[in-house]
Design a protein around this nucleic acid. Structure first.
Lengths: 137, 137
DNA sequence: TCTACTTCCTGTAGCGGCTACAGGAGCAAG
DNA sequence: CTTGCTCCTGTAGCCGCTACAGGAAGTAGA
């Protein structure tokens, strides 16, 4: 059994964040020592690590909770997890696409600044009425 | 002069968001009608549009405020704007890179689910201790 | 002129996902 | 026994909005 500090080290989840996850019911409440300190089993630490990795992958907490509850009921949850992952993949693709558009827009605005004619062509372009709407979303 | 509803239409900024920008000092307080309603000049509406477009480009409010204050003092602020824009461009590139890594990680995890051997290979991979740390940040 | 409807006002609280305190208690080493 | 670390609870703040509630002002038609 490990205290919250060790659990944090091993899972890579910040101590405050671990307590936050507990408050929000993302992970179950751990046992306590005689002195009232949280004690984590290796299994619970694995769960925290799982949450962190899912967060790193960009999953929102709500979906991670679904993942964890699907995992509780051991029967054939793989396809459901896969479906969720793939719809998330679509979102990521959309984000990448938008960011790429945005990058091009910024690049061309910034490039205009090089000719040194106007006070600030970038600013002017963003102020003007006729400037096209960049982001689709 | 236009009421907040018209200003919202013309700038593309939500009414509530306009008031929020005013509270936060992003844009100056507009004049008021006899009855106490906000009245916007075309110039103020252009400013709102400017803020929205910068937000669309992913700039945080704090940077947009810098943009606007650089604009107030008309003297050669172009290079500063350009510098800010380019460091923002770097951030966008980093985001795209991370998302791309993330997409590959998700794809390969999801692909593993297809062979239908384990209960859920994706879940197992995320739980395991040895799984590499994906995201650099 | 009265009424119905729309727009606007202020103020406050909520969202997600943390992070940062304050003020105190437990615990191990020297 | 004291020092210093970790831990506890509870609360407030971060960003950039968004969504109310409860009321006042303005507009259009009968």
């Amino acid at each position: 059994m490990f205290t919250i500090g060790k659990a944090s080290e091993q899972s890579g989840v910040n101590i405050e964040t671990i307590r936050y996850y507990e408050r929000e019911g993302v992970v179950p409440k751990p046992g306590r020592s005689a002195g009232g300190r949280r004690l984590y089993s290796p299994n619970e630490i694995a769960k925290l690590r799982f949450v962190r990795r899912c967060r790193d992958l960009g999953f929102p907490i709500s979906i991670i909770q679904t993942f964890l509850s699907l995992t509780e009921q051991e029967d054939r949850s793989c396809t459901e997890v896969k479906t969720l992952a793939e719809s998330h993949l679509d979102e990521i693709n959309a984000k990448i696409e938008n960011l790429t558009l945005l990058r091009e827009a910024l690049r061309s605005l910034s490039a205009n600044c090089d000719d040194g004619t106007a006070a600030c062509p970038m600013h002017d372009a963003l102020m003007k009425d006729g400037f096209g709407e960049l982001i689709s979303e």
